[in-house]
Amino acid sequence: MSLPATAVVAPTPGSLDSYHVTREPYYRAIGDEVALYEAAYSVRMPIMLKGPTGCGKTRFVEYMAWKLGKPLITVACNEDMTASDLVGRFLLDASGTRWQDGPLALASRYGAICYLDEVVEARQDTTVVIHPLTDARRILPLEKKGEIIEAHPDFQVVISYNPGYQSLMKDLKQSTKQRFGALDFNYPEHEVEAEIIAHESGVSMDVAKNLVHIAERARNLKGHGLDEGISTRMLIYAGRLITQGVAPLAACRVALVRPITDDPDMRDALDAAVTTYF
């Protein structure tokens, strides 16, 4: 069982050592996405990962960063994020003010893969700061500091987004979309998903298959009362609870059914679906 290997150590300027992915993250390739990504990286093409939540987008980026041996800087985007949060800002210091590089500046200066998670959550005026970095220019102007960073040869931007649940309003601008190559992610095939769950949580293959069956029931309800089906990540959580000795029914209730819905009827129907397997 391996836990996600994200680095969260505070940055020390000039070095991205702490951002290196040191252990090999578990990733089970589903198609040719690894080869496609490698090809895209070799020409430093920005990449967009699309897919529902918890289907392995972030894990894929970690795995690729490890495979390519490059540092990985992850930014979780949100609505209140401003351009300064990405680019950097002046901070107060004992000797005056001091410029603090933001994650994007850091990655482009020292050569890392910059991963903007759930990028549509950020406002459109924030996302445009990545534009000069994601076309032929590959530069990042720091207007407040009066500096232009020429991107390091190793630098690449990867963004992820979930086309499913955003409203019509929260979409990427065309000018942003067209700067990226896109890889589609989805929940894996039945057998493969069971294999992933068995590996990640340590449950037996039979239990893993039953968990996938339950998830497929919930995915049937997407758009019919559920905004999103049960993700692979949730199944792994349920599996981990089961390996901890929690009864399967209780584990599914806690990790699968209760988190995704508040609707009592929906909860009841899903609970009933769980009992047809455990």
Binding site: N220, D265, A269, A273
Partner: peptide, 13 residues
């Protein structure tokens, strides 16, 4: 009725 409908949708797709 609503519960049954959701249940059917979940089980049989």
């Amino acid at each position: 009725q609503r519960r049954l409908n959701i249940y059917q949708r979940a089980m049989w797709g």
